[in-house]
Amino acid sequence: MHELSIAQSMLEIIDLHVSKSGCTRCTAVTVRAGLLSAVDEEALSFAFETLCEQTAHSGAVLSVEKTYPTARCGCGCTFKVTDLIYACPECGAVTAALSGGDELDVIKLEVE
């Protein structure tokens, strides 16, 4: 359940930017989470919603943009990995080098 401490970090970031902007509350937040970041979207939404309930940001909407690793196979083929049980669509190899897909970022906030 590291989603709870991730949601706590989101709240800290939100509080910081809301007060810097001179606004009073956040109404929406967009997060980018890669397949390899091991973040469960439902658990994160639940944790975020629950933590927000006790704050000015109650009801803020969380959007999660999923990203996926890119695999570069030894045969030269490049493909997106949406499931970690994968094989190269060209040669069938299962040991392509993965890059990206491990992001865990806050992209933007809507404040008012």
Binding site: E12, I13, H17, S21, T27, V106, I107, K108, E110
Partner: peptide
């Protein structure tokens, strides 16, 4: 309503 672009690691404080 204002949009604030952040584009930073969520766990940047931990980092």
């Amino acid at each position: 309503m204002t949009t604030i672009d952040i584009n930073d690691k969520l766990l940047s404080k931990n980092d």
